[in-house]
Nucleic acid binder design. Structure first.
Length: 578
RNA sequence: CGGGAUGUAGCGCAGCUUGGUAGCGCACCUCGCUUGGGACGAGGGGGUCGCAGGUUCAAAUCCUGUCAUCCCGACCA
């Protein structure tokens, strides 16, 4: 490819609407352009990289025994009604109507369609197990698209679905996919952490996420990952568990009484005023879960993990209640307290969930539903009864103790590039997808599903591989392998040598660009660095000694060597990819 | 949806306070000159100032509404 013909427009400055490095660089280097919020054009450079990631994924999935197919991205409402998700998926599902008025949606994921395919196509246990996958655009009308390709409303995903006759088969395939994923990301130059996670809208029992650790300057990592340095434990904050380090649990009050606590709306102010540790205070928070109020009780020095609370009450949606809503609850119970002074005491008809952490408290402090007053020296079973629902709704904090090996946990930020779920029979039962088992009984498929965000992986790779000059994607997924630059195109020797090198590389199957533009060298070097050609050969003044400059973009190494040596180095690096 | 900000040429911005018929840098076209890290000179093309109302002799500028985009929170590959 000649540089003058390559369809790319590099910008001299970063776009003003981009925040994270991958977004800034991909736009500036001419890989992508925004079409609408969260919707991007993949220009030729980007598309080459995406195809490479897709192909790596394809090779590894095929090698793992999966088979590729392609499902439509327009899906009929009926299937979503069958699975029950038409009503629960919410606004994120891009819905539309066809000319007959029938409901359709653009696929955010394909459990419904694949289950339909299995129901129609798999009749006997003899056809099992099977794992089917596709690579295709997905649509999710995100509440807040951001960070360029990291959170778009349209994105490219590889999604695979496995069907087994029993749990043991699913476990085996789950392991198989976990290993395959690690290999795929490795080949893309990404080190990943496999962490336990909540299974969210997809459903199912067990799930893990593949995180690219991204703890750098711009916070591109949207997830907090807790992990143990001693053992292999690691989990998304929405799922992480821990043992609490020792903290005071006895308030030390000798009798229960209501005391004045002026201006003590926050736990800190209250602890300071009463001269107690926050850990002997019970914090009461009000949430709205699917339009119903929920009170959550947690130890004063800890915070609620909303996903855990959402799961505890079986809700689809949860948010913290507003002060107006709290007022409404109080009024309904003939009370007047503001947030900060509330508790479940004397409150009726509201679901109450307590975190495990409050159970062991003695002589503790809690609100009493009167503004600027608290109850001190309370005990479970006396002044207040322990709620029926006691579970883990606590957000883990760094330094708490690993449940597996009792070492302190650490935290880091991660970009989720892949996700694997054990679905079990959630969809097969709902959609009556059954096969004839060996014993003559009809049984639902045991399913698993496995996703990789292809376009997000590309963006994550840029997050991990860049410097002040631009992108430096690894050879395996860079748009091109190499660039050849004649410093001065009007110099016949330079131009001729560059063309010879270019042709030799081209003939050897190297994906190479010749920068034959009549530009000053600075422009060519800046563009080459920005776009991120892994190898650069420069034909310039060193030709006097018959040498060229050879530069490795990823480690910055520069050497002056014979043209043929530079060519050989590139060819052998490219061949090593296969 | 709640909180904050911004919409002026492909990109980055000024002009708005104090209304007077739109400008700068980069990019683009032509000519010259230059060629190892985003040169220089001369000339040129490109904008219904997000959109719709209103105030005014006159609106990018003031007022009202609306749309879009971005940032911070709830969603997730």
């Amino acid at each position: 490819m000649k540089m003058s013909k390559l369809f790319v427009q590099t910008l001299r400055e970063f776009p003003s609407d981009a925040e994270v490095m991958s977004h800034k660089l991909l736009v500036r280097a001419g890989y992508i352009r925004r079409l609408a919020s969260g919707v991007y054009n993949y220009l030729p450079l980007m598309w080459r990289t995406l195809k490479k990631i897709e192909n790596i994924t394809r090779e590894e999935m095929d090698a793992a025994g999966a088979q590729e197919l392609l499902m439509p991205f327009v899906q009929p409402e009926e299937l979503w009604q069958e699975s029950g998700r038409w009503d629960v998926y919410g606004k994120e599902l891009m819905r539309l109507k066809d000319r007959q008025g029938r409901g359709m949606c653009l696929g955010p994921t394909h459990e419904e369609v694949i289950t339909y395919i299995a129901r129609e196509g798999i009749k006997s246990y003899k056809q099992l197990p099977v794992n089917l996958y596709q690579i295709q655009s997905k649509f999710r009308d995100e509440v807040r698209p951001r960070f360029g390709l990291l959170r778009g409303r349209e994105f490219i995903m590889k999604d695979a679905y496995s069907f087994d006759i029993d749990e043991a088969g699913l476990d085996k395939e789950y392991e198989n996919m976990a290993k395959t994923y690690t290999r795929i990301f490795e080949r893309c130059g990404l080190e990943t952490k496999m962490v336990q996670s909540d299974s969210g809208a997809i459903g199912g029992s067990v799930s893990h996420e593949f995180m690219v650790v991204c703890d750098n300057e711009n916070n591109a990592g949207e997830n907090d990952v807790f992990y143990c340095e001693k053992c292999d434990y690691s989990a998304n904050s929405n799922h992480a568990v821990s043992i609490l380090p020792k903290a005071p649990t006895d308030g030390g009050f000798t009798k229960a009484q209501v005391v004045d606590t002026p201006n003590c709306k926050s736990i800190e102010e209250l602890a300071e005023f009463l001269k107690v540790e926050p850990s002997v205070i019970v914090k009461t928070l009000v949430y709205v879960a699917d339009k119903k109020y929920v009170m959550a009780l947690i130890r004063g020095d800890k915070n609620v993990e909303e996903i855990k609370l959402q799961n505890a009450v079986g809700a689809n949606e949860i948010r913290i209640a507003s002060s107006a809503e709290i007022k409404e609850i109080m009024l309904n119970n003939n009370k007047t307290a503001e947030a900060g002074y509330i508790s479940p005491i004397g409150i009726e008809d509201i679901t109450i969930v307590a975190d495990n952490s409050v159970c062991e408290l003695k002589n503790f402090v809690i609100g009493c539903n009167e503004t600027e007053k608290h109850l001190i020296g309370a005990n479970w079973g006396n002044e207040i009864s322990l709620p029926e629902k006691i579970t883990d709704i606590r957000l883990v904090q760094e330094g708490e103790i690993c449940t597996q090996c009792h070492s302190p946990l650490k935290v880091t930020r991660g970009i989720e590039v892949g996700n694997i779920f054990k679905l079990g029979t959630k969809y097969s039962k709902a959609m009556n997808a059954v096969y004839m088992a060996e014993d003559g009984q009809e049984k639902p498929f045991i399913m698993g599903c496995y996703g990789i965000g292809i376009s997000r992986t590309a963006a994550a790779a840029v997050e991990r591989h860049h410097d002040e000059f631009g992108i430096k994607l690894p050879l395996a997924i860079a748009p091109y392998h190499a660039i050849v630059i004649p410093v001065n195109c009007k110099d016949e020797l330079q131009m001729k040598t560059a063309e010879e090198i270019y042709n030799k590389l081209l003939n050897a199957g190297v994906e190479v660009v010749l920068d034959e533009r009549d530009e000053r060298p600075g422009v060519k070097f800046k563009d080459a660095d920005l776009i991120g050609f892994p190898y650069r050969i420069t034909a310039g003044k060193t030709l006097a000694e018959g040498l060229v400059e050879f530069k490795n973009r990823s480690n910055g190494e520069v050497m002056t060597i014979k043209p043929q040596d530079a060519i050989d180095k590139i060819i052998s690096a490219v061949n090593a990819l296969k």
